[in-house]
Computed example of a mutant assay.
Amino acid sequence: MVIRLALLFFLIIVGCARAETLRVLVPDSHPVAGEMVGVTIRGEYTQRIALETLTFPGSDDYDWVQLARDSWRDERVDGRTMKVFERRIALFPRSSGTLTVGPLVHHLTIAGRNGGREVLDVRAEPVTIQVAPFPAASAPLAARMLTVEDQLSVPPGELRDGETLIRRVTLRAAGTLAHFMPPRPEIRQPWLVSFTAPEARGTKLAPEGPVTTVIWEWHLHPKTGEPGVLPPVAIPWFDTVSRQMKTAEIPAIPFGYASFAANRTGSGEFPASEVATAAGVFSAGLVTGLLAIFSAATLRRGRELKQVLKRSLLLDPSRKALRAAARQDDLMALRSATEDYLLRRRTLGLPVAEGATADLDRAIYAAHPGSQPFDPGSFVRDLLRRKRRRSSKQTIS
């Protein structure tokens, strides 16, 4: 009799243990490389569980992120009330081919009938997913939705003289991770000075999948008043809802100073800027004539005189541009004028102090703009004074 009771008790324990099941559930779909695959890990348990641990396995074949906290609830399964465990995972295949997920082991600590505890491991068999190649030659970018927001600080085709345009582009994509988003595009033109702010990337989790945001910002300043056009930037992506390739676009924008067009369509009077330009051309012609006369007398002395005249403060237009940018209190224009000034000095073989733009760069790209006081006028005066001090030292030596 005792043996029969022991055997019955053993069969009951084995039956309960076999009732514990763990499965990996994947949708019946045909994802492409980079597309999110919703994976659900489901456990059905009859035992009283005191502790549990489940680690989702990593792999070189996919990226993954858990979408929400684990769910535990009571549910009737085949007429029995069971404790149901669920974990939702977003899986992103890195390449095409057969993708294997698992096996998984749920380590359980169950409460025994006599008050003790027992360890029970429940195993889920591996599942396979057939992944199709990404349907384009571009880097894989698959999402349920992708939007582009282009914000401009001022109308780009009507800039005031010396004004800088701040362009901020925001990409939002649902159903992908940050590293699948494209890199920042280059905005470069021969007539344009461009500075970039640090890129911002972030991902927020939602029940239907992660939502990723990328923010790019440029500070754009034309070198001349002549208008131009910044070309559009195409971003190819795969729409997982329509199952088609689409193209998002950062639109093209016209770019230039409003005064350029006004100067071409004005009345019979010449604008002050054109008068100044004409005077500069006349002065340059006069100086060129003098140089030609002197060089005819002696080539060596002509070259020396040419260098002296080029180094003369009276013929240094970059100094005027520096002071004008400082008066406008436009740091990006001041940065461009400073580069022109330093380039001229390097071209003429004049000394240039190291770190000449350090204070200005900190003022432009500080994490908290305005946290440190910066006076454009003092910066320009110090820059010019530093040049004179270095020149005088070389003369004395």
Score class of each variant (00 low, 15 high):
D70K: 13
G112A: 12
S336A: 14
E304R: 15
A90S: 02
E75I: 11
D329N: 15
A197M: 04
H106P: 00
F134T: 01
H221T: 08
N114F: 08
V77N: 06
P376V: 09
A279C: 04
P222R: 00
F85C: 01
A296L: 08
P376I: 02
R303Q: 11
P126M: 02
A367K: 11
T21D: 10
L334D: 00
L67A: 05
G116Y: 03
T81I: 10
A143E: 00
A143V: 01
G162C: 06
S371H: 05
D361P: 05
A261K: 08
R87C: 10
I41K: 00
R94M: 02
V122F: 10
L290N: 02
A200Y: 05
T109P: 04
F238H: 00
F56Q: 09
L5A: 13
G97Q: 04
E75L: 06
M145G: 13
L141E: 00
A333K: 00
P27S: 11
R201Y: 03
A326Q: 07
E249R: 06
V105P: 00
R362A: 15
G34A: 07
M145I: 07
P93E: 01
R167I: 02
R167L: 01
G97N: 09
K246M: 13
V241N: 09
V233Q: 15
F282P: 03
D316V: 06
S378L: 05
P317K: 00
P126L: 03
I89L: 13
A111R: 15
S29V: 14
D61K: 14
T100K: 10
P155D: 13
A324F: 05
P135S: 11
M332C: 03
S371I: 05
R346I: 03
E274Y: 14
V233I: 14
G225I: 04
K223N: 10
R69N: 13
A353L: 12
G228Y: 00
Q307N: 13
E118T: 10
A90L: 01
D70G: 08
G34W: 01
P251A: 12
L348S: 11
F379L: 04
L305G: 09
V193A: 06
L120R: 15
W237A: 02
G266C: 07
K393Q: 10
D63Q: 07
H179P: 04
M245F: 08
S283G: 12
G116K: 12
G58R: 06
D70P: 10
T212Y: 01
E86F: 03
R323F: 09
V101M: 02
F374C: 01
A258F: 07
E217G: 12
R4L: 15
G302E: 02
A261F: 03
G370M: 10
T164D: 01
L177N: 01
H30K: 14
S267M: 10
R301Q: 11
T170G: 03
V122I: 09
L291K: 04
S391D: 09
Q66N: 03
R76C: 12
P103N: 12
